[in-house]
Simulated scan of single mutants.
Amino acid sequence: MQHVRAGMPATAWSWLGEVSHTRMDIGQRAKGLLRSAGEHGLKAGLTVPLWTPGIHWAFMTLTTDATADLRELRSTLGPMNYFASCLHSTVRRLQGDRHVPRLSARQREVLHWVASGKSTWDISEILNISERTVYFHLDGAARKLDTQGRMATCARALALGLLHP
């Protein structure tokens, strides 16, 4: 929880006390808890911060007993971050989050290409606009959707039916 509340990104961790993408002080404080998790069969996992309108912080933790190798887990951080954001947005919609903001056609177009895995540079070339303009549309969509980050913005737009897979 300290990792998420400190505004840190998604992280991989193991029962050996290893934590990626965090501050040293948070990693040190987590060692005992992580070793205890290992004693209960949780060998490693990913913790993904989630942002929701009206909630200051939330997170999803995915665990495994298949590996404790952080290199293997770090390679799944991107896809799992996207998965957690999609699941979180879908659950909010199912619980009655009915506010559906209006995105401009260009914002939807940029998000479509982001969801397709294109980089900012790729999108600027495809749409014949500057990278700065791509960021402008991403920022605008994120502000309207009350999200932080490319993946969370795409996930929320998909969950709200503003994008189609």
Rank of each mutant, 00 (worst) to 15 (best):
M60L: 15
W13V: 13
L158C: 02
D139N: 15
A159P: 00
R5S: 13
N128F: 02
S119T: 15
T11P: 00
G38L: 07
P165N: 11
R93C: 00
G27F: 12
L46K: 08
G54D: 07
R108S: 12
E39K: 12
H3C: 09
H112T: 12
K144N: 01
G45F: 10
S124C: 04
D65I: 00
L162C: 01
A159G: 06
R35A: 09
R92K: 11
V48G: 04
S119V: 03
A68Y: 11
Q2Y: 09
V114E: 08
A37W: 08
T147S: 11
C154R: 01
A155N: 01
R132M: 10
E72C: 01
V114N: 06
D139F: 05
Q107E: 15
H21Q: 11
A58K: 10
D122A: 12
L77Y: 00
A152Y: 03
I126W: 06
V19W: 10
A58P: 04
M151E: 12
R93S: 01
V100A: 03
S119N: 07
E125P: 00
R35G: 04
R23E: 14
S36H: 10
Q148L: 03
I55A: 02
M8W: 07
H164E: 14
M151N: 09
H164Y: 07
M8S: 15
Q2R: 14
L62W: 05
W121D: 08
T52C: 02
S119R: 13
S116R: 13
H56P: 04
S119I: 05
H56D: 13
A44G: 08
L103P: 11
A6C: 02
F59D: 05
D122S: 07
A30W: 12
A44Y: 03
D146M: 08
R143M: 08
S20E: 13
F83W: 10
Q107V: 00
D146S: 11
S119Y: 09
G17A: 07
R23W: 10
G149S: 04
P101G: 04
S89F: 01
E131Q: 13
G96T: 06
E131G: 12
D139E: 11
R143E: 15
A44W: 04
V48M: 08
M8H: 13
T67P: 09
L46W: 10
T47Q: 10
L160I: 00
G149E: 02
I129A: 01
A68W: 10
A44S: 15
E125Q: 15
T52N: 03
R74W: 00
S116N: 14
N81A: 13
G78N: 05
V100I: 14
